[in-house]
């Protein structure tokens, strides 16, 4: 048995595998397949201050080796999360990461303040949702606005703060450096890439929102590249995600510089994907003489 435990921005996890926000709800559904306590952590569904209805359907379109989604942050709001979902999650054995998404800087600050008083282990500030008209990626595609919202949230919480970055930018490292400078304890990347599909029979976009976020194995090489660049540009730890489906993908992402990883779209093909990744990481470590998984972080030897 290899030691898969990691300490990520001060948060201890028994393994580095975390279901990604928006793909795992609050864990209740997947807890009916297996105990979610086997996971290192959970990044919960993006939470807004007030309940949010989300976008009209269709909200999903299949793509080669992936999918587009345009859910638009449908959620029950912070109050419901704190009162109904959090107690259930705290009864399990895994790190709880609250993913927060505000339409304004002030809303992000208020969310952080609310969550600061809870049992949440870490905050993931979402500045990269491509499917909402206000906030979301509007914060994350510009260094100044990314810095401003991070500063506001940092001022409202002493919890470990991770900022989730958008890949739909010219330089993700500049954004990462901007949020690091404002006190972010970690960054997570990548959120989905903006994409589009068209039904050629109807000449209509498949998604009612016209455009949506691309995820799945199709985006994996982009995610590896961005994690590698970002890990080399900042000194805070990186949580890597984007198309991870297997333990080998997770190893690759960690070698690129991720200290822990998130699994998203792969869950839809295989609900057991996170567990298979955990078991596969253990096996891989044993086969490769790695005693502690953290040893491999950032060990890629670039040409």
């Amino acid at each position: 048995m290899a030691d898969l435990s990691v300490v990520f921005a001060g948060v201890s996890m028994k393994n580095p595998v975390i279901p990604a926000s928006g793909t795992f709800g609050y864990g209740r559904e997947y807890d009916q397949f297996y105990s979610i306590s086997r996971l290192g952590g959970i990044s919960v569904k993006g939470t807004t201050l007030a309940p949010k209805a989300g976008n009209p359907p269709p909200r999903i379109a299949e793509t080669p080796a992936g999918m587009l989604n345009s859910v638009g942050l449908q959620n029950g709001g912070a109050k419901k999360f704190l009162e109904y979902e959090l107690p259930n999650l705290k009864s399990k054995d895994l790190a709880v990461i609250a993913n927060i998404a505000g339409a304004t800087v002030e809303e992000c600050r208020q969310l952080a303040e609310l969550i600061d008083g809870s049992d949440v282990d870490m905050i993931e500030l979402n500045i990269s949702c491509p499917n909402v008209k206000q906030g979301g990626a509007a914060f994350g595609t510009n260094c100044n606005s990314a810095a401003e919202v991070t500063r506001a949230v940092r001022g409202a919480t002493s919890k470990p703060l991770m900022v989730k970055l958008s890949p739909n930018v010219t330089s993700i490292t500049d954004i990462a450096k901007a949020v690091e400078a404002e006190g972010a304890d970690a960054v997570s990347l990548i959120n989905t890439l903006l994409g589009m599909r068209i039904d050629i029979k109807t000449r209509r976009p498949v998604l009612k929102n016209n455009v949506g976020g691309l995820s799945g194995p199709a985006v994996f090489p982009i995610a590896v590249r961005m994690v590698w660049q970002t890990a080399n540009a900042v000194s805070i730890p990186v949580c890597g995600m984007g198309g991870i489906a297997t333990a080998e993908d997770a190893v690759e992402m960690m070698m690129a510089g991720a200290s822990c990883i998130q699994v998203g779209a792969a869950l839809f093909a295989d609900p057991f994907a996170p567990l298979k990744i955990i078991d596969g990481l253990d096996r891989w470590c044993n086969e490769n003489g790695v005693k502690n998984i953290s040893e491999i972080v950032g060990t890629v030897r670039p040409w």
Binding site: G22, G25, Y30, P57, R59, I60, A61, V71, L267, F268
Partner: peptide
């Protein structure tokens, strides 16, 4: 409706 996870986690198969 077009579905993702099928179990209620991903919220893509919305209907009014």
């Amino acid at each position: 409706e077009r579905m993702g996870c099928g179990v209620g986690a991903c919220l893509v198969c919305a209907c009014k």
